[in-house]
């Protein structure tokens, strides 16, 4: 506030003003629904997850292997049709420790989102979460392995991998 204005002008609105309808308000809840087609690449990727496999693609031109897969190489702009089964291990490219939920409430147990570079890929990995780890023990470059949902519970979703957990380095 300035020297001429010690407090904001007007009357602050309180929750009970809305409840008592002393203030005009309009409630509108959007009813948007979509049924996105996964397409060739993501469809095959999700089918792979249901089978407990991580599937990527390799560009025949630049040789880059990416996951999630795609039917074109965005660097070379060429069609891609070489499918590769990848291991479920990799390293943390970057991670964060998230203390806020999707509805913006504070989380007691934080979620650890991470970009995981799956072994065999070239600077391409997918986004997932880290489990079975204390945030303070994690480092960029920490080696991780997928923890899968039970096969009967997998449904062709990114959540078929429950999380990645720190793993031993294997020579």
């Amino acid at each position: 506030m300035s020297k001429h204005l010690q407090k904001p002008p007007g009357v602050p609105l309180r929750e009970e003003d809305f409840e008592a309808q002393r203030v005009l308000s309009v409630m509108y809840r959007p009813k948007m629904r979509y049924s996105w087609a996964t397409g060739v690449a993501i469809g095959r990727f999700l089918k792979g997850l249901r089978a407990g496999k991580i599937i990527g693609t390799q560009c025949a031109h630049c040789r880059r292997i990416v996951v999630p897969p795609r039917v074109f190489c965005e660097w070379c702009f060429r069609p891609v049709n070489d499918w590769v089964d990848l291991p479920d291990t990799g390293i943390i490219n970057t991670f964060s420790v998230s203390y806020i939920s999707t509805d913006t409430t504070k989380l007691k147990t934080p979620i650890i989102p991470a970009v995981i570079e799956i072994d065999g890929t070239t600077h391409a990995g997918f986004l997932h979460v880290i489990g079975e780890a204390k945030p303070e023990t994690l480092k960029i470059g920490t080696r991780v392995k997928a923890v899968w949902a039970e096969s009967t519970k997998r449904r062709g979703s990114i959540t078929d991998i429950r999380y990645f957990k720190p793993a031993e380095w294997k020579p």
């Binding site: 087609a37 397409g39 690449a41 039917v71 074109f72």
Partner: peptide, 8 residues
């Protein structure tokens, strides 16, 4: 076009 994604 259920067989392809919008990207494809």
């Amino acid at each position: 076009t259920p067989q392809v994604s919008y990207k494809e």
